[in-house]
Structures are given as C-alpha cells and as structure tokens.
Design a protein around this nucleic acid. Sequence first.
RNA 1: GCCGAAGUGGCGGAAUUGGUAGACGCGCACGACUCAAAAUCGUGUAUCGCAAGGUGUGUGGGUUCGAUUCCCACCUUCGGUACCA
Length: 1007
Amino acid sequence: MLHHCICSNAELNFLRKNNFTEIKMEYKFSEIENKWKKFWEENEVYKVTEDPNKPKYYVLDMFPYPSGAGLHVGHPLGYVASDIYARYKRLKGFNVLHPMGWDAFGLQAEQYAIETGTHPAITTENAIKRYREQMDKIGFSFDWSREVRTCEPNYYKWTQWIFLKLYNSWYNKETNKAEPISTLIEKLQSTNYSRKESRDETKLQTNTEKAWSELTEAEKQHELMNYRLAFQSYSEVNWCAALGTVLANDEIKDGKSERGGHPIERRKMRQWFLRITEYSDRLLDGLDNLDWSDAMKEMQRNWIGRSEGALVKFKVQSSKFKVEQPLEVFTTRPDTIFGATFMVIAAEHELVNTLTTPEQKAEVEKYIAYVKSRTDVERQQEKKVTGVFTGSYAVNPFTNENIPVYIAEYVLGGYGTGAIMAVPADDERDKKFAEKFGLKIVDIVDKSMYPGATIEDKVGKMINSDFINGMEVKDAIKAVIAEIEKRGIGKKKVNYKQRDAGYSRQRYWGEPFPIQYKVVGQPDPHFEGGETDDIPVPLTPDKLPLILPEVSSYKPSGDGRAPLANNADWVKNNYETDTMPGYAASSWYFLRYMDPKNDNEFATKDKIEYWKNVDIYFGGAEHAVGHLLYSRFWNMFLYDLGLVPFEEPFKKLVNQGMIQGRSSFVYRVEIINRTTDLVSSEIIVSKGIADKIKLGEYTVFQIVDLIEKQTGRKIEVGEYIYKGPPAIAGDMSVSDIRVDISLVNNDELDVPAFTNRRRKDDDFLLLLTENGTFICGSEVEKMSKSKYNVVNPDDVIEKYGADCFRMFEMFLGPIEQSKPWDDKGISGVSNFLRKFWRLFYDDKGWKVKDEEPTDAEYKVLHKTFKKIAEDIERLNFNTSVSAFMIATNELGALNCSKKKILEPLLIALAPFAPFITEELWSALGNKESIHTATYPTVEEKYLVENSHTYAVSINGKVRAEITLPIDISADDAKAQVLALDKIKQWTQDAEPKKFIFVKGKIINVVV
RNA sequence: GCCGAAGUGGCGGAAUUGGUAGACGCGCACGACUCAAAAUCGUGUAUCGCAAGGUGUGUGGGUUCGAUUCCCACCUUCGGUACCA
C-alpha cells in the first residue's frame, strides 16, 4: 500500500497523471469493498482455530432457513449486530468463534417441489448460494470453513445419532437425569421394582399384573415406550382429506386449507414424541442463571406452566346407566370446590361417548364435528361461548349435589386431564359459560378486604364452603387437598402446561428416522384408529446416516403417510416413512460448529471443552418457546449422558427485533348486478375512496359518476344496478389488493407501471382517485415475498455501500425493537461516511498530518471511545453510530486531521464499517489488517470536568441555568442560586420551602 | 382468549440509577458557493402565544420536591400460541 504521508511531489504528480488521486480523493465504496472482500478471503483473516493461549469467546447467530426469496433487509439486522460484537471482541484480544450455517430442511422447499417437481436439494442449494453471495457483500467476519448444512448426510448423520440416544434413554427420577434404557431394564427385571408406581404420570399401557420376565417381546417394547425419551404415541393432526395430507398450522387459514380452501379435520395418528416434560423442572430452574431478558424467561416459564394443585375424581351418573369410571379433573384451586356447580370436558375426552345420553346424542355429535374443524388456537380465542350438555351428571364430592357435565371447546384435551370442575364464581370463562347456559353460581370467596383484586387473584376468605369457611385462600387450598387425600378421591399434583414435543412430520424434506419396523400386522390393541402394532427397531449407529432416498412424488401418499411411502424400496425395508421436524437439526447445531467435519463424533471432546457454551446468542424473539426451549432440552440431555460439559447452551441471549415491511394496498371495488350476480369490470380505487365506501359514504351511483368523470367510461347503470330503491353500500364490495412496493413511492402509486403490470388490456382497468394522485393504503407486517413488500439488501448496498448499509441498520433504532424498514434516513449515514473520509482526503488529496493533537482533540477522541465501548457492551449500537457522527462533526469543526487522533478512531469504527476503515488504515501505512489490531483504551485524564452547568427549576420546572464548581457544597450552591435574578422573580426573596441539590444533576427550588 | 413486548416532533429515534424531554439523523425552510444544477457548507425547526408564559412522551388516574422512567386501569400495534422457521 502507498504511504501517502511520505510521498514526494514527483510521486504525487505521477499518481495524478495516472488518475490515482482521483480514485483516492473520493470515497468509492464499491472499489474499496470489492478489494478488501477479496483480500480477507485470500488471507483467511477470519479463520479461527483453538488457541489455548487466548481466552475464547463464542458469538452465535441463529442460522437462517435459506428460502427461495433470498435475504431481505430484515435478516442481516442480527448478523450485523453480532458481527460488530464479534469484531469488537477480537480487537479486545479474544479468540472468537463466529460461524454461520444453514437450517436447510423445511416446508417451503418441499411445497415448491410439489408444485414444480424440482428436488428440494436443488432449490436449497441455490438458495444457499444466493444467501452466501448476499452475506459476503455485507462484509461479515464469519469463519466459513466451519459452515454447516443440516440437510447434508454428514450433518444429519449426527441428528439421527442423537435421536437414537434419546430413543435408547429414559429419565431416572431418582438420579434426576437421563440414563441409558439398559439401566431401566435392569430395574424392571428386579422383582422389588414396582412398575406401577414408577411412572405415576403415565397410564401404563401394558398388563402390570404380570412380572417383567413373563411379558412377550412386544409387551416389553410397549412398556418401554412409556419411558423412552423418544417414543411413539397417538396424537391429533390437521388432516385435510381433499389434499390427502396432514397440514401444518401455518397452512391453515380460517379453519380451511390455505391452498384450495378445503375443510380440515382433527385426526389421530401414531407419531413420534420427545419426552421434554421430564425436563420441565430443570428447564425452569436453569432460567435463573441465564443472562436473558426477563421477558424471554417469563415466556419460557409460562410456556412450561408449572402449577400446583390437585387431581380430584368426580363420580358420574347417567340417567340411563351407571358409569364406573370417575371423571378426573386437575384444578389449581381445590379450595373453590364448594362452588363447582358444573363440569366441562374436552371434545376429545375419552368419556364423551359414555356420558352422552341418547337424547343428547345428535346435538353432541354436531358439536363435536364443529370442534374438530377448528384448531386449538381458534378454539381458545373465540369470544363467543359455545358448548353442549352431555345429558349426564357428576356428583360434587363435597356438596353431594348433582352437577351437569358439558362439552365445550375452551377445555382442551391436551392440558391437565381434559376435564375441569367449573367454578363460575371464581373463574372468568366458567362464569361466562354459566351465564350463557343458565347454570348455578355460588359465591365462595369473599374478596371485599382486598380492594382491586380481580376474580382470578388467589386471595380472599372462603364463604359458603362448610369446613373451610373463614379460611384464607392459601390455607383453604391446603385443607381441601388434605381432605381429598384423606377420603381417597384425589391427590396433590404438580401439573405442567408444557406437553411432550411432537417429533413426526408427514413430510419428505427432513431427516429420516433411523427406525425399521418389525412387522406384526395386527391392529394396535392399545389405540383406536386401526393402525398396525408394528414394533420399531432402531438401526445400529454404524448404519448411519440413513440417507434420505429419492421419491417418485413429493406428494404425500394420500392415506396419511408421508412421501417416503412413494419409494418402494423404502417401504419394502419397513423404514419409518415420517421424517423429523424442523427443530431437530437446530437443537444442536451450535455444537457442530466446533468440529464441523468430524466423521466419527458429533464433535470431539477437546474442542467442546475449549469452546464450551455460546457466550452470546443473537436471534429473533419469535423463537422464545420453540427452538430456544428444544435446544436447551437437547443440550441438557447430552449433558446427562456426559457428552457435553455444560448444562445450558446459551449464556447470554439478544433478541433482535424484526424489521417489518411496509406493504401497500390498492382497493378493488366490485359492483354486483343483482339480477345476474355478474361482476363489473375491474375498478381499482385509492385509499380515500375505499375508506368512504366502507363507511357507506359513497353510493354505487356516485361511483358510476366518478368512473365517467375520471375515465370517460360509461357504466351501464341498468346493467349493474338493481332498479328500485336507492343503491346502498351493500351493492358494492371492496377488497384489498397488495401492490408491489416497487410501484409505490411515498404511498403514491406509479399509475402507468401499475396499469402495465396489472392487465395488458387496460380497457377494463379503471382507476379512481380523489384528487388526481393515487394514494395507496399501507400496513406494517412481516416482510415476505407473498406480501410484495420485500426490500433486498443488494439494492441498498449497490447504491450506498456495505459499510453504509451496516451502519444504517444499526442506526435505525435499538436492536431489540421491531421497526418497519424505511430507507429515507439512509442518506444521513452515507453523508457521515463521506464526511469521515474527508477527514483523510480533501480535493487536494491526502491531508493526514503527524502533528501533536490538542487537549480538545484528545477529549473528542476519548469521549468517543468511552461512549462506544459502553454502548457495545450494552449492545446500544444505534447510539454508537450517532457518537461516531458527533465525533466526526466535532473533529471537522476543529479542522483536525491528525494521525494520532484518526488512527485509533479507525480501530473503534472498524467493527461497524470494516471496509472503509481497512482502506484508510492501510493508507496510513499499516501492513496488517485493521481487524487484527488492538482496541484503544480510554484515557480518563482528558475527560475530567471541574464545573457543571446545573438546570435550576422552580417546583420542577426549569427556569434558569447556573454553572458551579463540581465540588461546591449544597449551602454555597443555595446561596448562589437564590441570588439569581431569574430565581428571585419566583421566590420573591422569601425563604423557599425546600431546596434540593443533587450533585452533578439538578437543583430544584420549592416555593 | 392466553403469554410477551412496544407506543415520545412531519419521520427513525435519544434521555444509562426518578433529575434540563426531543441527542444523532431524515425531512422541511432560509442562506452561502455556482451561469445553473448536483454536491458541499451554514442557520432554523415539538406546539400555542407578539411576549411573559402555557401545553406536551398512547388514554385516564396515583406516588414524588421532581415521572418518558415507578404503581393501577384502559386503548392500539407487533411477536408467540405447540406441524413456518
């Protein structure tokens, strides 16, 4: 690199002649960025190896799913932040692991394959290539030699391997950790181990009367399924008969399939699960020691939903016949049992048929069909109260009253026992239900001594409750549980909202299960549903990876089985046809980065010991209870088996907000011909008109007039409008149409471009506006291709450069906050970079001098260091950017281009703007990359202040200012302040009521 | 519905522990340079008021000498809600 300071005039002239200075004097970001991108790659500047002499630091990003749409400007937000942090840590002397990879299995590529026949591997490969190119442009310091791709056999081999570990493990409650299943079998074989007691939560599905040794192999396997951490059970899926496939919740809109609008039905299927509930308590307790936001911890706590309460059995009697099996409920409020005036069971409760009386049968069946067509979310968010009486009654064991049993969708099969005792006096939803169905309400808690307490608060004194009358709620809970246990009708119980994690997907593009079935061919005796009782047999680890085979069709088989059923060999070998879910691979990928190419282990022990857990993890808050819970669980499991030396995988978590898109809308008006139901030609109106139509402020006649006025086109009124009473808004319908944001500028539609794209034959396209300009509606929502609101980072970089893009993303606002993308402010950052560049170059060329800086210049420098270092530690990158702007403005004002100021400032800026700083660093004569430099230290001596300008307020309102020495006493300050003319105006020379002096902050005079 | 978060000028946002609300930037206005434009530089910019002064951080209330910050109730928007990742 040329060292400009020592260039002779002759050299400069030579350079000028060769047009070099022009390149240099102007900030040409694309040349600079291309040059250094290449340099970093060729010199492997970001490659990292285990180095015992340096402290390690692991900076991780949640790896992306490479979708066909490419990266949009929202994706890099977290990556830029983590990159700044990783670069900062490197400059501070840490050995930083900062990898990136691809979460490459998923639904989108599969859907694309179904539509086009292209193999998902090809789509995925292309998407990765595109993402990689886009990322490289931004200048990330990832060590790409450690890249992982979850869809490749050398990766999913280890996903399958961990699955086998889960399958072959059980959770020993005595040692409180996972152990190999062999230790369980030993216990089961021993005669003094009670199989019935060992799993109180699970209904054992085998005959526990027989001794273990007397069981058949199939019976043994069935029983072991109750313990395995990866196990099979039955659960409901969204079955779409018309499409012959199981649908993800995401593929359902308003209770219908998104594609085609077909009806959905809940259908029970045999599925794999992970027994995450065994870890519920540890997942809860572990949160206490994590450096995560309280919000994130709270969400996980609430998701796990630990609650203490009681299981209570209610006897049931039907008018026609006797029911042997009691109805069991879980309640967190056993104290309210005297107010339990009815019961509600879930539509999928096993006693539904038994309890339904012949008179109620038709109504119950109708209701159950309705519930089955709805997802859990829909069932709970419904504001209207629905339900149906079974015809049967249960007996409240404490009041001995007969209470009716209802079925309602607000009770879910998956939570608790799928049945509740309803206490309308003390539960909001029960109350609404009771009011709707005219059921008895008995007040049982007096809250009058707790003003402001809500219906659900666990406070008050019991009334109308026999032996617990007068007790506080807390004590009453204990007393009732004791009584329940004494009478043998129930027991104390801890319940978790969290359920075991569904692990089967009826999909192609995922990891195959390393499972081969031993065919029995008999219907499963333990479950309804007609599935066969085949016994899963795990592959031995040496058979891994079990490669995902080609299939003749990516469509599901149609009978509920996954696309792998379309491969004859696969079926012949009795391999499992389901595949693993999306979260499988992402539950452990952070470990693979440590040793990504290892064929013999998922990662070797030495390397795991060196890198340990992730020090800081950047990712979206949308993963709060999914990925972040699953990966904690997997890591704890591996810890139990002694495969990793730490229980928690992510020490610190940063949730970057989502950058949302701003979608634009136009509005299509349909005028309906009442006699023929025909729809008029396409009429597109602006937001103002659409709003008025929706409010009923425009009649059809007025719209027809508008059309004629604005387009000259006459709509045959008679043809479209019912002749008779005046048309009302109901004669038109308005629907929102998304319009690509590239056709919209400041909410104004580019009418010619829109017309062009919308319809070739614009004869039928009528655009209406209120005053000439076509203003679109807008909405802030997730950025996505289907919403036509995607902004591509490539375009931004092309226009402004990568350094500018990086700094602008940071400048947008706090990293944790969601915000819509708006590139209006980007020119500010662009201006800053050019101003910064001009500290080094002006029209005459290089201007950096070797002079000794003044104290004022040093002060600017060290003030900035201090601010930046504090900001980075606190992850306030937006204010760091503004600190750099302030420093540049101040140095510009001081006309300072001194090397001793600019060189260290470059290092501080390097994590944010790696390209421009590298270029200027090299222009200063440095041979090594700036990214291997040492971070400057703050020298406090330049920052010492000896006076402070206080704001003086009267009764909290600022009225004056006064500059006082920093170590002045309160009394001296008071004397000086009260002598101020402005203050005298308010005090009228009277002694103030109060004088508040907060050193270095404020003075307040109360009069 | 439930769980979590956010709401501050025309716009993005700042205010770190309860202590001068609006840093920094965009936009806008005016000015300088220029034949002109662009670029650049400078000045101003919460709001009402001539001013003194008043009002102002989603809404309503409270605590405090002092509240964007703490408490209570509510409204709106966003994320998650167990098969999108």
